[in-house]
């Protein structure tokens, strides 16, 4: 790892310099809400944010995309080879990408995810946790890989960590913006990280997987009573990988596109099979399956989105507390 220092008043020049590495996607504030969008100029970007509603995952795994074109039964790939820069990704979202890598890059490799993540320069950014965050419990508070460059906000400068050759090329490319790191900078960096650590709730999640399996239907009924089967909790989750595939026909009825779109295990079609049988018919079964997938198989990064954006106020930490009673 290489350590550098970037003064805050240099951040705009740094932002302009990274455009040469690809299309820049960054957290943009639009009517009070943060979302990862293409950002041309620095004025649109807001680097002080707690969480974006839709995780940066959508830049690498678009919510809905055509994966194949077909004419009669002849199929052609539709692959995105655009170079991208993902600026302002928090620790938890970077670790979420590492979890997605374990799924999509494992043979048989998903080339759509592979081609995009390969061409994306990831620049991490320290976060401002609130009391919905529980990344301490899911061991996703701090990461030392999964990114090219990491900017830690230490007041009037960014403490910069460079982890990959590509990251190094970026810093070399705009050498004049960076300075050597001295003892004092390092202390400020550690102090900032300590403060960030205090702001996150502690919660231990040992034994959760078995507890989820041990609790019976009635337990899950209590927590799924308010659930509206709307799927929001999974659609905002950075580690959710489920997708649905469907075809669309064009005018000549012979050619068309095969689409892939985000799917949710909280919706009916997820467990539905051709002859009408549904393996997760009732809402409590779906909630239990979601908890099992996230906390049972340690595929949660504690970002709190599923609780913040649940319209009926179902709180994942409340369920964890009840599980451990």
């Amino acid at each position: 790892m290489k350590f550098l220092k970037l003064k805050k008043d240099q951040i705009e020049d740094f932002f302009d310099s990274i455009h040469s590495f690809g299309i820049v996607y960054a957290p943009v504030k639009s009517d009070g809400k943060i979302s990862f969008r293409r950002a041309q100029n620095f004025s649109d970007v807001s680097l002080e944010y707690t969480r974006s509603q839709i995780p940066p995952k959508h830049v690498i795994l678009p919510m809905e995309e055509p994966i194949l074109k077909f004419r009669e039964e002849e199929y052609f790939e539709v692959v995105d080879d655009e170079n991208k820069v993902l600026l302002g990704v928090h620790h938890c979202d970077i670790i979420a990408f590492k979890m997605l890598d374990e799924v999509y890059l494992q043979p048989p490799k998903d080339i759509y995810y592979h081609e995009r993540i390969k061409r994306t320069l990831i620049i991490g950014l320290s976060c401002i946790p609130d009391n919905y965050c529980f990344c301490k419990a899911t061991n996703s508070f701090y990461t030392s890989d999964g990114f090219d460059i990491f900017l830690h906000d230490c007041g009037d400068f960014y403490f910069v960590r460079v982890a990959t050759p590509r990251g190094l090329k970026v810093t070399e490319n705009s050498k004049n913006l960076f300075e050597k790191v001295d003892e004092k900078d390092m202390e400020l960096f550690v102090k900032a990280e300590k403060e960030r650590f205090e702001r996150v709730k502690g919660k231990n999640l040992w034994m959760i997987g078995d507890l989820i399996e041990l609790r019976d239907e009635n337990f899950w009924k209590i927590f799924s009573e308010r659930c509206l089967n709307c799927g929001n909790c999974t659609l905002v989750c950075p580690t959710c990988q489920c997708f649905e595939v469907y075809d669309e026909l064009e005018e000549d009825l012979k050619s068309g596109n095969r689409f892939r779109r985000w799917d949710s295990c909280m919706l009916r079609a997820h467990g539905l099979v051709a002859d009408g049988h549904n393996f997760r018919e009732r809402t409590e079964e779906r909630l239990r399956n979601r908890l099992s997938c996230k906390l049972g198989e340690m595929r949660c990064v504690g970002c709190g989105r599923c609780t913040v954006y649940c319209p009926t106020g179902i709180d994942i930490l409340e369920i964890v507390r009840a599980l451990k009673e």
Partner: peptide
């Protein structure tokens, strides 16, 4: 084989079991 979709272990429609034994 009655409950699968993508066939490549990605789309998780065919998940069975709970927690680590899933």
């Amino acid at each position: 084989e009655r409950r699968m979709k993508c066939g490549t272990g990605k789309c998780r429609h065919c998940v069975v079991g709970i927690g680590s034994s899933s």
